[in-house]
Design a protein around this nucleic acid. Structure first.
Lengths: 210, 210
DNA sequence: GTCTATACGAGGATAGAC
DNA sequence: GTCTATCCTCGTATAGAC
């Protein structure tokens, strides 16, 4: 895959390398020298493409945001398509979306973006905003789904705000543990099972058996 | 309160200053020069108290761990004492423990420790271990509580592992949002209400009405 | 236990030749 | 758009006087 990277325009090559190094060590621990040495250019050349080291980080934040938007757009259209939900298929749908979510962020390129934003979220307001936006978007999408299910009388007429919050918070915390296990090279089997078990119990609670 | 700090032994003063600066900017963004300048000593003097900058971080991790242990010890004894649960008091108990938890980590000293460990969790295995330990401890304490409630027939004989996981994951994600809102100077009112609402619905689901 | 002095590599960034 | 050369500050850390 090195060929792919080395065929990129220099600007992309720099950004890609920076993302890779930032994700491994954190923004501050990586120097411009290290980035350019890895790319194979001189420090001064980097400044023909980026104003500063900070600009690299900002562009990475933008990439993260566009990836998040891409995922949520996919989720929205999946919900839209499934307006013809068959009663028994909700569980399959949720499990598939969970798998899609995990696969989406397991992609090495996106995983790096996720790490960088996560690392920076506590000291960088921009990063914090992106994470909070993720929380909100997840709730919003879930609320939308639950409303569709309520409208089709597949689940009881429950408060979709509260349910969406509950489901998305739980899933998000599990996802954080999933990521932490992955990065420390531990098995994610158990936490994946917990996620599936949660979906199962969540549905049992809300489905309209009548 | 500056008097309090300046009366500390030098070793504590350095550690306190380091924690404060690390929490604001991150470990890498803070230099030994900056720490000693803030304390009012020369760089060389710091090395009479600490082997290296890394040792400062390690000691901060130890402080975090001892604070976590302190909290969980308090929670355990609260559960122990409440073995005589009155049916109607569980909600009060959980709400109180929630408030205690938030107040505990809202203390400026502990908040700093929490920030530092959170920031370092993605690149530092020691920090990642501490966070994962927190996940586990929370589940364990909750499982213990639920088991007590089941034994006293206050709640239905449900799987305490699954319930503990669900409750603690949800609360933890909400806590993360709480912290992120705080650090970005936004209102935490809404998320606190969500926490209380979650406790309410959780209890409704599991209480033995019979 | 703190200071002065110093070592020396690494940090981000720029000027100007090619 | 890349290079060489250079700037100057900051990084951690140590030796040795007081």
């Amino acid at each position: 895959m090195k060929e792919t990277i080395s065929n990129l325009p220099m600007r992309e090559k720099i950004l890609d390398t920076a993302a890779s190094l930032f994700a491994q060590k954190g923004f501050y621990a990586v120097s411009v020298r290290e980035i350019t040495r890895t790319v194979g250019i001189k420090e001064s050349s980097l400044y023909n493409h980026f104003r500063s080291k900070d600009q690299l980080l900002e562009e990475i934040f933008d990439l993260f945001q566009s990836q998040e938007e891409e995922f949520f757009k996919g989720l929205s259209s999946a919900i839209e398509i499934k307006k013809t939900f068959k009663r028994g298929k909700i569980k399959t749908f949720l499990n598939n979306e969970l798998k899609r979510f995990l696969r989406f962020w397991d992609s090495p390129q996106r995983e790096r973006l996720w790490f960088i934003v996560s690392m920076e979220q506590h000291r960088n307001p921009h990063a914090a905003g992106l994470i909070l936006q993720g929380f909100q978007q997840t709730r919003k999408s879930l609320k939308n789904l639950i409303q569709v299910l309520v409208d089709h009388k597949i689940i009881k007429p429950l408060n979709s705000d509260l349910l969406a919050a509950e489901y998305s918070y739980t899933m998000r915390a599990m996802f954080l543990e999933y990521r932490l296990l992955k990065v420390t090279n531990q098995s994610t089997h158990s936490i994946k099972k917990s996620m599936e078990a949660y979906i199962q119990r969540f549905l049992e609670r809300i489905q309209d058996k009548g």
